[in-house]
């Protein structure tokens, strides 16, 4: 048969695919949430005792005031069997209730803490991702054009080494050099206490200054990964027959660069771009700790040092949901932008 009926296929298969994909996402979230619940609940020791110990060792309190503080938190610590706690957690999770924190001003809903910190992480992770992706694409394309040359193979090794350097090392160096030594950038927090939060220029400027070093730390490490992926992808595309044929047809080089090389080389990177969002959320602990940045990672760090079970679970589950949803969106968007997937190749 000379023809393709796929172009005429209706939307039924798309709908079916989408339902299935959504179902898998929900099941994944359920299992991941369950797994982390039991892991977190397995943390040893009596929570109140752990809390007392923490207050003593972290805040150098004397035992009595630590004890009274911890006991104030006691009513907020869920009781009953782990299974019972699990079921009531699931039920409240479905209602959007993530329990209360026992470390931050005791009794604050975990949800509120998350709502306060998510925007900061999104700001840093999001800008870092976009900046490093953009730079990486440019460098990678350039490397692919001179593929096999001395400069290309040098950069390839250089970037694969840079990629393996932990981002906390980069962050520490930036902190010491540009924060403490040159004092070009603030070293802690998301904004200075003397500016009024809101949509005003001084505040925005201040926020950007505070976010600069955290973003730069991510960018330095991540640019190399994107550059290497883009290089590999572009080298493949450059060897494709449709590039040669486009040149023969006399298409202007700008058109070839954008809709031929660019589009076809970036497409395969798209999925990992989306997935990175979720993973950078999870990896934000180090950088946010170093710059005392009030995002999700810092919240997790606090929760762990304070044995704040529900806060910990809250952060965990937010990250799990972020990972699963970004994978889901990646799949859907990929279908939209790559015609080969869209019409069901």
């Amino acid at each position: 048969m000379d023809g393709s009926s796929s172009a005429l296929k209706g939307y039924m298969p798309v709908l079916k695919w989408f339902t299935k994909r959504l179902l898998i996402a929900l099941i994944t979230i359920y299992f991941a949430v369950t797994l982390s619940f039991f892991v977190v609940k397995a943390m040893p020791g009596d929570p109140v005792q752990a809390l007392i110990q923490m207050f003593v060792s972290q805040y150098y309190m004397d035992y009595d005031s630590a004890k009274s503080l911890a006991e104030a938190a006691a009513p907020f610590i869920p009781k009953g069997s782990v299974l019972h706690q699990y079921i009531s957690y699931l039920i409240s999770f479905l209602h959007g209730n993530l329990g209360v924190s026992i470390s931050y001003s005791t009794g604050t809903p975990v949800k509120d803490l998350l709502i306060q910190s998510i925007p900061w992480t999104v700001l840093v992770v999001g800008s870092a991702l976009i900046i490093s992706f953009a730079i990486g694409i440019l460098i990678g394309t350039g490397m692919a054009y001179v593929h096999g040359s001395k400069i290309d193979s040098f950069l390839a090794v250089f970037f694969s080494v840079i990629r393996s350097i932990p981002e906390y090392v980069v962050a520490l160096v930036l902190l010491i050099v540009f924060g403490f030594h040159f004092k070009w950038f603030p070293t802690r927090g998301a904004y200075s206490p003397n500016v009024t939060p809101g949509f005003n220029l001084p505040f925005i400027k201040d926020v950007l200054k505070h976010a600069a070093l955290p973003i730069l730390s991510w960018v330095i490490v991540h640019v190399s990964g994107w550059a290497l992926s883009m290089r590999a992808s572009t080298v493949t595309v450059l060897g494709e027959d449709y590039i040669t044929y486009a040149k023969i047809r006399g298409l202007p080089s700008r058109r070839i660069l954008v809709s031929y090389i660019g589009k076809n080389a970036i497409l395969p990177l798209f999925t990992s771009f989306m997935l990175s969002i979720g993973f950078m959320f999870g990896g934000s602990v180090f950088i946010e700790y170093i710059f005392a940045y009030p995002g999700v990672g810092n919240l997790l760090y606090q929760a762990i040092t304070m044995r704040d079970t529900y806060l910990m679970l809250g952060v965990f589950n937010i990250i799990i949901v972020a990972v699963v949803i970004s994978a889901l969106i990646a799949d859907i968007l990929y279908g939209v932008i790559d015609p080969r997937i869209r019409r069901g190749a």
Partner: peptide, 25 residues
């Protein structure tokens, strides 16, 4: 061209191949 099976850009429609070729000339 010789490589008929892979000579078209997979990410643009056939009609765009005609239009861009026309534009280029």
């Amino acid at each position: 061209p010789q490589a008929a099976l892979n000579a078209l850009n997979p990410t643009i429609k056939i009609i765009d191949h005609f239009i861009e070729t026309g534009n280029a000339h």
